[in-house]
Amino acid sequence: MTNERLKADAAMLMDALNDQLAGIAELQKKRMQLVGTASVCDKRIHVTVNATGVLIDTRFADDIGDLTFDEIAAAMTEAVQAAAADVERKGRELTEPLLDRKARLPKLSELVEGVPELGTPAPLTPPAAAAPDGSVENSRPRSVVAEQDW
């Protein structure tokens, strides 16, 4: 009886793992199609970044000439950073259902006595520079797992 229960639990866990892996693959496809956008300076500057935060489109309004070059440069930096934050937020929202489903799965240690836990948190990556001098002002550490531990 115990052996049959163990087999059934293992089969259920394998099915859940296969579902999770399929979900991750689908999620990765969807995530790579995400874009983030931002408009600044009363919508005079509008930018779009791809899923990795790379600037892929810039639009200037007809009255962009009312701004100085320094104002345009500062606004571009602000807009690209805001668009990158937008795409990062969308990516987190996309992964939430999969992470919730993962959290509901039984842990291997709950099924097999004595098996160690494998889900230790990954170390945080240091924040990327957010200013030209290499400072990390307005940055925060990101978990390596945040986008990959689905």
Results as ranks from 00 to 15, higher is better:
L118H: 13
L108V: 11
D57K: 14
Q33M: 11
K7P: 03
A11D: 11
K43F: 05
E137A: 09
T37V: 06
R104Q: 15
E4T: 05
E147Y: 05
L67M: 14
R92H: 15
S109V: 08
V40W: 02
R59H: 12
D63Y: 06
I45V: 13
A129F: 04
D66S: 05
N50M: 05
T120H: 13
A128N: 00
E147I: 02
T2M: 06
T125G: 06
M1I: 10
P106C: 10
E147K: 09
G91H: 14
G114D: 13
A146K: 07
G119N: 14
A61V: 09
Q20A: 10
E88I: 10
I56R: 09
F69V: 04
L118R: 12
E137T: 10
A75Q: 09
T68H: 02
G65N: 10
N50V: 05
R101Y: 10
K30R: 15
P127K: 11
A128L: 07
E117C: 06
D100Q: 15
L27E: 06
G36A: 05
Q28D: 12
S135H: 10
E117R: 13
D70Y: 00
L55R: 01
A103T: 12
D9E: 10
R142F: 02
E4G: 00
E4I: 01
R101C: 02
S139P: 07
A75C: 14
Q28Y: 06
G134V: 00
A16D: 14
D133W: 11
G119W: 07
P141R: 03
E110S: 15
H46Y: 05
L124Y: 12
